[in-house]
Design a protein around this nucleic acid. Structure first.
Length: 442
RNA sequence: GCCGACAUAGCUUAGUUGGUGGAGCGGUGGACUGUUAAUCCACAGGUCGCAGGUUCGAGUCCUGCUGUCGGCGCCA
């Protein structure tokens, strides 16, 4: 079996006046005992089909009349351009029910289930996520997400980056150890990776420009609209690069994602109420860069209680991002606020050569990156200074022992970018099966 | 880890100072030949999250538990 007729092509007028065979699912069904209006959904759209008892005969008409929402069907008939609401209709002449829905268990996602959700997510919809995926809002989000993933791949591949895979079982942490997922590993302990970075640095002298998109895992009991325990992490690492060059790629990839969405998903973005002018601005306007010290001054001038040396938490990020209409970089954090792999600034070692990219509209951090500590002497100092044991990082230190070079990279939260660019209220809305501290099912 | 809410039919919910739980959607049966969340009539569907307590009497008041949601911290 195959399918060669798609609803969006019918709606575009490709089949006007022709007999076609349509495969899909019943979205809505209404009408009388003599005529039924059956709206069929497929992955590309919805179209109204007209079933008449006089044409179909009693058997198939009654079968169709009794078919519940989300039954799968094959319908054959003639495409007719009309000036009614849908623009095109199919006058059904024959067909068959492929997968009938049992009336004892009707499709549970009803209008009422959707009405209160309004883009957000009720417990019921989260419990029935596997069915919620079929609704138009979720389908739209998944299409946008696909384009975001495609844009990230094309950005790096078009610039001769090599896609490179790191293990997901690891022995040590990248970030603080408290957020590691521990898994039993044949009598030993292993952890789920928090980042591809350390393994990417090992391959940096071999590939020089590399990237990945892979899940990262963080056992944070975060209950916010921008955290998942399993999230998709786009990371890159580049040899012979400074913090500034890494930032150029960060800006480049985010702008490329925005322009790709404008090309590929304007209709979808508009259908969920996203202002396309905003997306165009994110694609076209340069992203400003401010230093951590300037950010502190801005915050203090606004009367925010913040001291130099503190990391900037979300409440402060939000105040800062309110001043910007496009994403903006924060650079040169105090070294005491950042982990050992960030390289101290040779011009003032109180700071490290790092950057965060903050999305506007209150969405906050989407990229964290910077230049790496790359000499053996410096990396050992930084590890010891932090009180981190050296042993799990021997392979990482070896990268410096054998021809270390200046290099850097960043990690981008793909789900966060999807949330921001789609204008979603919650990161859960943009991933099919979200994982957080309270939910691993379905 | 911390703080705050919520839990009534398959879904969304109403439920007064405590007195035998209603509706809309969905489902079933019926009417209806152009409907747009179709309409109209009828029917079925409830251990009011769980366990205690107060009371003549608890969906309603109290305590504990469980689950979920929202926010903070941390981060992408």
């Amino acid at each position: 079996m195959s399918k060669d007729t798609w609803i969006n092509d019918i709606l575009a007028g490709q089949y006007d006046g022709q007999d076609i065979e349509l495969k899909g699912w019943i979205h809505r069904s209404r009408g009388s005992n003599k005529i039924r209006f059956i709206v069929i959904r497929d992955s590309t759209g919805k179209i109204q089909c007209v079933a008449k008892r006089a044409v179909l005969g009693d058997d198939f008409f009654d079968e169709l009349k009794g078919s519940l929402i989300e039954s799968s069907v094959i319908l054959r008939g003639k495409v007719e351009a009309t000036d009614r609401e849908h623009g095109h209709e199919i006058q059904i002449t024959s067909g068959e029910i492929v997968g009938a829905v049992n009336p004892d268990r009707p499709f549970p996602i009803t209008e009422s289930a959707m009405s209160e959700a309004d883009g957000g997510e009720t417990e019921f919809l989260l419990d029935n996520r596997h069915l919620y995926l079929r609704t138009s809002r979720m389908t739209t989000m998944l299409k946008i997400r696909s384009s975001v993933f495609g844009a990230i791949h094309s950005y790096f591949r078009n610039r001769d980056f090599i896609e490179y895979q790191a293990p997901n079982f690891v022995a040590g942490a990248v970030e603080g150890g408290s957020t590691l997922f521990e898994v039993p590993y044949f009598g030993r302990k292993a952890y789920l990776t928090q980042s591809w970075q350390l393994y990417a640095e090992a391959a940096m002298p071999a590939l020089e420009r590399l990237y990945t998109m892979a899940p990262s895992f963080r056992a944070e009991k975060s209950r916010t609209r921008r955290h998942l325990t399993e999230f998709w992490h786009a990371e890159m690492e580049i040899a012979w690069a400074s913090n500034n060059e890494v930032m150029k790629h960060g800006e480049g990839v985010v702008r490329h994602i925005a322009s790709t969405l404008l090309d590929e998903r304007s209709d979808e973005l508009a259908s969920i109420g996203r202002d396309l002018e905003l997306i165009a601005r994110y694609a076209d306007t340069p992203y400003p860069i401010i230093r951590y010290d300037e950010a502190i001054e801005i915050l203090q001038s606004k009367g925010v209680d913040v001291e130099w040396g503190q990391d900037l938490d979300y409440s402060k990020e939000k105040i800062l991002t309110a001043d910007f209409e496009v994403p903006h970089f924060l650079t040169h954090y105090p070294r005491i606020a950042k982990p050992f792999y960030h390289r101290p600034d040779p011009e003032d070692p109180k700071y490290v050569l790092c950057h965060d990219l903050l999305a506007p509209e209150g969405y906050g951090e989407i990229i964290g990156g910077g230049e790496r500590t790359w000499s053996e002497k410096e990396i050992l100092e930084r590890i010891d200074e932090e009180g981190t044991p050296r042993e799990p990082y021997e392979f990482y230190i070896d990268t410096r022992r054998y021809g270390g070079v200046p290099h850097g990279g960043f990690g981008l939260g793909v789900d966060r970018v999807c949330t921001w660019l789609s204008g979603a209220d919650h990161i859960r809305e943009v991933i099919p099966f979200p994982r957080d501290s309270r939910r691993v099912t379905p």
